[in-house]
Computed example of a mutant assay.
Amino acid sequence: MHVPFVELKSQYQLIKSEIDEAMANVIAEGHYVGGAVVSRFESDFAKYVGVNYCISCGNGTDALEIALQALEIGSGDEVIVPAMSWISTAEVVSTVGAKPIFADILPDCYTIDPTDIVQKITAKTKAIIPVHFYGRPAQMDEITDVAKNHNLKIVEDCAQAHGAKYNGKSVGTFGDLGTFSFYPSKNLGAFGDAGGIVTNDDSLAKSCRLIGNHGQEQKHHHLREGRNSRMDALQAAVLQVKLKYLEEWTAARTSKAKYYNEQLAGLPVELPVLAEHHRHVFHVYAIQVNDRDQLKRKLAERGVDTQIHNPLSLPELLPYQQFDANDFPVAKAMAAKTLSLPIYPEITQKQQDHVVAMLKELL
């Protein structure tokens, strides 16, 4: 049996008629960038998250960078980011002229360690970017306390965490701004690149919208310099249809993650921890295991596709080797051991059973 790591075509087939109609309507209307369909998606997604504003943009990386620009973070500033994340979280800090400062992660939930954040704060620190990694919320109560005590801004990186909640509150609503990616493989994915920024702050919402549209308040009326980062209407149409199914898909992911946890219990692997006060949405189901690379090869030989999402911690990457990766032991160890198993709403129990059987055979 072959178990793909992700299967986007099956999701499309389930809602094909709705997606096709939504895209056909955009094509018939002839308004391909911005417009009513983008505004409707922004309104619907803001309501879903529980905020006043959603500002759409070109992709999740742009969302982070625009958020930092809206907070006027730049040259001479420092921003604390987790030592384990996709590079976007750190590179956007450099792109706006500031300096990323890494903090280690917590061993049981892969998210930034609030205690280590405190250790990294200096007079230059202006913001924290907690990442809700793999779909699990960061420790937002502690992080917001740190931010308040040190007068720091928070930009939540929610790229992997659509619908995740911490103590019943949606991610993206704790900080000054929250950012989302709608890359096709995300839990809420478009048919191409797309992103969004959420906030309750009127002024920040206005700034983000200006920055993403060349600083224009209206056509040819530029209030500031900005950039071109707008969501096209076809992507908004796809996302608006998919948003209706996100809760159903999230429940399916959670159920399948629990099944893995039950079936893999007792094996020599570290499994994701399911905390009662978290709503982990399992963009990724990651185990930690010794001889990870060899296990990946052997699973592939048996028809099970897996991924290594973060083979190196951020301080181990070439652009950040001015940092000593050994100063971030949890992130470094996790990068060496983490393996992502197939998980998506449409994966069948038969497919999961094959994954489990192969792991039991090999471990």
Rank of each mutant, 00 (worst) to 15 (best):
H2R: 15
E7S: 15
S17Q: 13
I19S: 01
E21L: 13
M23W: 09
N25V: 13
V26N: 08
V26W: 09
I27D: 14
V37W: 07
S39P: 02
E42G: 03
E42D: 12
D44Q: 08
F45H: 02
A46T: 04
K47E: 15
G50W: 05
S56C: 13
L64Q: 10
A67I: 11
L68T: 07
I73P: 04
G76Y: 10
G97L: 10
F102Q: 01
D104E: 01
I105K: 01
D108Q: 12
D108M: 11
P114Q: 06
Q119T: 12
A123S: 14
A127T: 02
V131P: 05
V131I: 09
Y134K: 07
A138N: 05
A138L: 04
M140K: 00
I143Q: 00
V146Y: 05
K148P: 09
G163W: 09
S170V: 02
D176Y: 11
L177C: 11
L177A: 10
L177F: 12
G178N: 07
G178E: 04
G178W: 09
F182E: 06
F182Q: 04
F182N: 02
N187F: 07
N187S: 11
D193S: 15
V198I: 10
T199W: 08
K206L: 13
R209W: 07
L210V: 09
G212D: 05
G212R: 08
N213V: 06
H214D: 14
K219V: 12
L223D: 12
M231H: 04
L234K: 11
A237M: 08
V241Q: 09
K242N: 08
K244I: 04
L246I: 14
E247D: 15
E247N: 15
W249L: 07
T250K: 11
T254L: 14
K256W: 02
G266V: 07
L267R: 02
E270Y: 13
L274I: 14
L274P: 03
H277E: 14
V281H: 03
V281A: 01
V281T: 12
I287D: 00
N290C: 10
R292Q: 10
K296R: 13
E301W: 03
S313I: 00
P315M: 05
L318W: 11
Y320S: 03
Q321R: 15
Q321K: 12
Q321H: 09
F323E: 01
F323N: 00
A325E: 02
A331R: 00
A336V: 06
T338D: 10
S340D: 14
P342T: 02
K350Y: 07
L359V: 06
